[in-house]
Design a protein around this nucleic acid. Structure first.
Lengths: 116, 116
DNA sequence: CTCATGTGCAACCTAATGTTGCAGGAGGAA
DNA sequence: TTCCTCCTGCAACATTAGGTTGCACATGAG
């Protein structure tokens, strides 16, 4: 079992959710879907243009979908892709936990051997 | 309940584990503790100096500890801090899951109301 | 039609990541 | 000790991501 190798898309997915501003944007879009670059920019400490760039990144990795509505462009979270991202977070976290658990057990067994 | 606000240290912890090279380094150090900047650099697609910079970042947020051993400097993972980082990953992931779950349920209840 | 508002594009700034190059310090061999 | 090797640390530089300002364009409201 070697789940060490992540594909390129997965790596891009991770870097997409690695940015704190983008995570905040996802939170906002989850709370109130259909936000635009302008509406999100008003709720964030960055300009509309910065938000637009982040939306482009999130769109490229499929975490959000754009819907043209007249002169404005509404964005919605793609639940499936976000679930995939959440799974990656959980995967990495539990991999670390498992590794630490093994190390802890190894240390204990060495201690037992020492005692004997 | 508004666990939205993360402290500054927590945010730095996130950005520390946000970098793919640093996550790889943590994996390597978990697999074989006591690695040096040079030994890690040989196992990674970056130079020793780049690794040293990453180690400085990880050291600053407390994810690793340095141990001077003669002319070389061995690094070890701080299990407590890594566990904290893993908990943050899990927290964000489950928050998303919960949010999506609520949206899904809302959609279903609206559908039921429509049908009636 | 006119005007306000949302969007898109380009230039620029700063910080992070990575590189090359070089100086210094600790261990081992003659 | 002296010399040589290897690991570390620091500085200068290139590249890219995140952010800002400024401007041109399009579309809906009046």
């Amino acid at each position: 079992m070697t789940p060490k190798q992540m594909s390129k898309v997965d790596d891009e997915l991770w870097s997409a959710i690695g940015d704190p501003t983008r995570r905040q944007m996802l939170d906002l879009l989850l709370a109130d879907s259909g936000g635009t670059a302008t509406s999100l920019g008003q709720q964030l400490p960055v300009t509309r243009q910065a938000v637009a760039k982040h939306l482009a990144v999130l769109d490229r990795v499929g975490l959000v979908n754009a819907t043209a509505a007249g002169r404005e462009k509404r964005y919605h979270v793609d639940a499936a892709q976000l679930a995939k991202a959440a799974a990656q977070l959980a995967s990495v976290g539990s991999a670390w936990d498992a590794r630490m658990q093994r190390i802890k057990q190894l240390a204990e067994s060495m201690q037992r051997a020492q005692k004997k």
